[in-house]
């Protein structure tokens, strides 16, 4: 991967242009389903037939990852879990792991956060309590149990190696003309942006002015220093949600959870909601997912 983001923000045309910036084989950090997934970019990655992606769940994965896995875009996932929440198990993930087609690097939520926080600080590892005695420790060669060096009492403690994603990818409510993006309280998005070499963001709306000069907006802003490029994508999280704008489409996720249990059902789903919507976009200026 190239260098960290420069100071001049770049605006790209749309989600497809962002998908073109994600090379095959990249290590891509994604948020959970409840936290601003760039679903329109996920669909564009399927359309550009991305291959060999290594996904990092921060700290878990859901619909977006399952779509990429089912479409053959993914080589491995490092995550604490993959699930559709109330809509049940992630069907393409489950099938891919059980058939041996997908490698899973199993983690536990705070170890993902801790590994990213180490990268935020530029240190090689960071300790966390708990975890010792879990079989995860024996599977993870990048986790080490050491004696707490600050005490003479026996006190084993686990270290998380710094996690450095190539790319952070997520959706945001707003971008401004300075290239700042507003993520609100979803601060895990800031963590993955801080820790990743490049950060690509789709946004609902472009705001005039500089959000960092607004005291009420500024605490929810991710500064443009971390943003490699941003692109507009209205309803870009659908079928997932953006709080106060549109809710998670539970009925759609339940539908996906049912039909994607079979390979044939998943292919029909892709045809209807990923491939066909491109053709509609190409023949109409106003795409709709309704």
């Amino acid at each position: 991967m190239a260098d960290l983001a420069a100071n001049a923000p770049r605006f790209l045309a749309d989600a497809q242009a962002i998908a073109a910036q994600v090379p095959d084989g990249a290590f891509v950090a994604l948020p959970p389903d409840y936290s601003l997934v760039a679903a329109e970019v996920v669909r564009a990655l399927v359309r550009r037939r991305a291959r060999g992606l290594r996904l990092l769940g921060v700290p878990v994965l859901g619909y977006g990852a399952d779509l990429l896995i089912g479409a053959g875009c993914v080589e491995s996932v490092e995550t604490s879990a993959v699930s559709l929440g109330e809509a049940g198990p992630a069907p393409r993930f489950t099938e891919a792991v059980e058939s041996g087609a997908l490698r899973v690097v199993d983690s536990t939520c705070p170890m993902v956060h801790t590994g990213l926080q180490a990268t935020e600080k530029g240190v090689p590892f960071m300790p966390l309590r708990g975890v010792i005695g879990s079989d995860l420790v024996t599977e993870r060669s990048d986790w080490k149990v050491i004696q707490n060096p600050l005490t003479s009492e026996p006190d084993p403690i686990v270290l998380a190696a710094a996690i450095e994603p190539d790319i952070a990818l997520f959706h945001a409510r707003w971008a401004d003309r300075s290239g700042n993006v507003w993520i609100g309280r979803r601060r895990e998005l800031a963590t993955i942006a801080h820790a990743s070499r490049r950060t690509y963001v789709t946004y609902e709306e472009l705001r005039d002015g500089d959000m960092l000069e607004d005291e009420l907006l500024a605490p929810g802003v991710l500064s443009s220093v971390y943003v490699t490029a941003a692109a507009p994508a209205a309803r870009g999280a659908w079928p997932l949600g953006v709080v106060d704008l549109y809710a998670i489409d539970d009925a759609h996720l339940a539908h996906y959870g049912r039909v994607a249990r079979t390979r044939e059902g998943f292919e029909r789903y892709l045809e209807e909601f990923v491939w066909r919507s491109t053709r509609e976009r190409n023949s109409s200026p106003a795409p709709s997912h309704a």
Partner: peptide, 8 residues
């Protein structure tokens, strides 16, 4: 699905 936060 996976271990979620259980190990901590």
């Amino acid at each position: 699905p996976g271990s979620f936060g259980s190990a901590f």
